[in-house]
Design a protein around this nucleic acid. Structure first.
Length: 567
RNA sequence: GUCCCAGUAGCUCAGCUGGAUAGAGCAACGCCCUCCUAAGGCGUAGGUCGGGAGUUCAAAUCUCUCCUGGGACGCCA
């Protein structure tokens, strides 16, 4: 639509600006009384050395387009009013014929994108802090898939590193096999926290931990056995969380997976003459890039985070030949990813630029970062359980006859927590506040789910009526102001998906879902649908509802949230 | 100290590729279930867009500077 308007504007004004430029200036007015589209004439006014409002008048005069019923000049703008029935018919036909595929594109056909998401550390509980990477990454993966890309979801499990030396040390000194078997993660976490408390007064513990990790890397049998055990019980616990969230991965290749690929990385860096000795460790200097040096190998020969990520990048490029490789990781690691890219560039690797760090703000508790080391964390599972319990209470109170209360409580409870994390721009820090997270009113997941359920309810009732009351053909002749906003919002769906993709920002989808739900709730409150006497009008309104449920459900799906038909 | 991110209503946030009267939700106050699920709708009140300077016909939006908060800065990940 915008391109058609742009074409006509160009003809009507005779401007030298390109169609693309003109199209990009077309906006949606703030108020619907100012039309459906608007074109600001200020730039053209400069080109022609003419007053904007005069130019707007001229363009409005000369403008003709069959989809536009009215064109008006107002304060330097040209406002366009769509032929609503004509436009609505086009939009509704599109949604109803495509269903869940509405908004799908094949932009990324035949191209692969790897996405590094969630990536919890084993032997540590799944905290609220890890929710962000999991939920944002999952939503971005869904959006990317919707645009036709082949997305590989990689859970880069934190299962390697000095921390396991610490854990083994702690277990050897204070641990009990019995206790760990009984409740693995809490017990291992307790040992980890205890280690850090003790290490403050006893630095030799740190040395011991480093030694144990070195032994692990060298394949020491005792170390490997303990490590495997810790890893196994951790993954079992994580899978419970992922089941609740209904999120799955294509690969669980974590850091340990790259253990046997590390020598190659070091060899390549050596061949290129990039490795330097520094204070006993081996580093790649990044002075020219204005970055601190990247540590590759510790004094004792053990590897580091960066070494493993380099190995992972090479492996993924080989294995998946990705077009882009995304890392959905908190912004406290932005230096690490800058260094990673810088090292790859020093190796003259062309695809270094294809690595993208999708950073996000952190979950703060009492205004500070949560710390696993100090045991200052909030457990995700506990929050999810609470949320589901609250949802169940709400159902008992509001809709006691509902069947499948459990499933709905699950969808609503989880949906509330996930949506809470997704609706805010990812770069912002999130202050953990349980009562905000467990809210079901206002701009929340359950609000959107509720709008969807209400619309479904009407459609269900309409179908149950004796004579089928949904119209067969789309002919919304009677659509007026009440329907306008919903139609316009539905038609903006694919733009929103593209924006979310271009900016790697799922909050755009969440906000869109709220907007559409809000418009529907307003419509619901002010317009009769089932009770409408004119059968044609009723039938067309039901079609609008049908389209609305499709788009609401699909928006929620992109966010990883379920849309129950009743709640 | 250096670098990164953020500062918009009491609170949580939209708006930021410059454009028409700065928008929501929560909290507060007041209305609306003899019509489709009140997890809803309608209304009232609430703002020096952190401060200052600059660019522009036009700045919450761009540039500079200062202030505040968070984070990162060699053998953790």
């Amino acid at each position: 639509m915008k391109s058609k308007i742009a074409e006509q504007v160009k003809i009507a004004s005779g401007t030298e600006f390109s169609l693309g430029e003109i199209e990009s200036w077309i906006e949606k007015p703030k108020f619907s009384t100012m039309g459906d589209y608007a074109f600001p004439c200020f730039r053209l006014a400069k080109e022609f050395r003419k007053a904007p409002h005069l130019l707007a008048g001229e363009i409005a005069q000369a403008f003709t387009l069959k989809e536009i019923v009215r064109t008006e000049a107002a304060g330097g703008y040209v406002n366009f009013y769509l032929d609503l029935p004509l436009y609505s018919a086009k939009v509704l036909k599109d949604v109803l014929s495509k269903g869940a595929d509405y908004g799908r594109q094949d932009l990324g056909k035949g191209k692969a994108i790897t996405m590094d998401l969630s990536s919890p550390n084993i032997a540590k509980p799944f905290s609220m802090g890890h929710l962000r990477s999991t939920v944002i990454g999952n939503a971005l993966a869904n959006v990317t898939e919707k645009l036709g890309y082949n997305v590989i979801r990689i859970n880069h499990i934190g299962d390697w590193g000095t921390q396991f030396g610490k854990l083994i040390t702690a277990y050897k000194i204070w641990g009990s096999e019995e206790k760990v078997k009984k409740s693995p993660i809490p017990e291992l976490h307790k040992l980890y926290v205890h280690f850090h408390e003790q290490a403050e007064n006893n630095p030799s513990l740190e040395d011991e931990a480093r030694e144990w990790f070195k032994r692990l890397e060298d394949g020491d049998k005792e170390a490997v056995t303990l490590w495997q055990w810790f890893r196994e019980v951790s993954l079992e616990a994580f899978s419970e969380v992922y089941k609740k969230l209904d999120i799955s991965f294509d690969s669980y290749n974590g850091e340990a997976f790259y253990n046997d690929k590390m020598d190659d990385v070091i060899a390549v860096l050596e061949d290129e003459g990039l490795l330097e000795e520094s204070e006993g460790a081996r580093v790649v200097r990044l002075d020219e890039e204005g970055l601190p040096p990247c540590l590759i190998q510790k004094r004792d020969g053990a590897t580091l985070y960066a070494t493993r990520d380099l190995a992972a990048a090479f492996y993924r490029k080989r294995e998946y030949s990705f077009e882009k490789s995304l890392y959905v990781v908190g912004n406290e690691q932005s230096l690490h990813f800058k260094q990673l890219k810088a090292v790859l560039k020093k190796l003259n690797i062309a695809w270094a630029e294809d690595l993208v760090h999708i950073s996000f703000g952190m979950m703060l508790k009492d205004g500070k970062k949560m710390s696993t080391r100090k045991g200052k964390i909030v457990l995700l599972e506990e929050v999810l359980e609470q949320s589901m319990a609250l949802a169940e209470e709400a159902i008992k109170e509001k809709n006691p006859n509902l069947k499948e209360k459990q499933q709905v409580a699950h969808a609503v409870g989880i949906g509330a927590v996930m949506f809470h994390d997704l609706k805010v721009f990812r770069q912002n820090d999130v202050h953990f506040e349980l009562k905000d997270m467990l809210r079901f009113e206002g701009e929340t997941g359950p609000y959107v789910q509720y709008a969807h359920a209400r619309a479904c309810s009407i459609l269900r009732k309409a179908e149950a009526e004796e004579e089928a009351s949904t119209s067969e053909t789309v002919a919304p002749a009677a659509f007026g102001e009440a329907e306008r906003a919903i139609v316009m919002k539905i038609s903006a769906y694919d733009e929103v998906i593209q924006e979310a993709f271009a900016e790697w920002d799922p909050s755009k989808i969440a906000k869109y879902a709220i907007d559409l739900a809000q418009l529907f709730n307003q419509y619901y409150a002010h317009t009769h649908i089932l009770n409408e006497e004119d059968k044609d009008v009723k039938g067309q309104r039901l079609l609008l509802l049908k389209a609305t449920t499709i788009v609401l459900k699909e928006s929620l799906r992109l966010l990883g949230i379920k849309a129950p038909e009743e709640m």
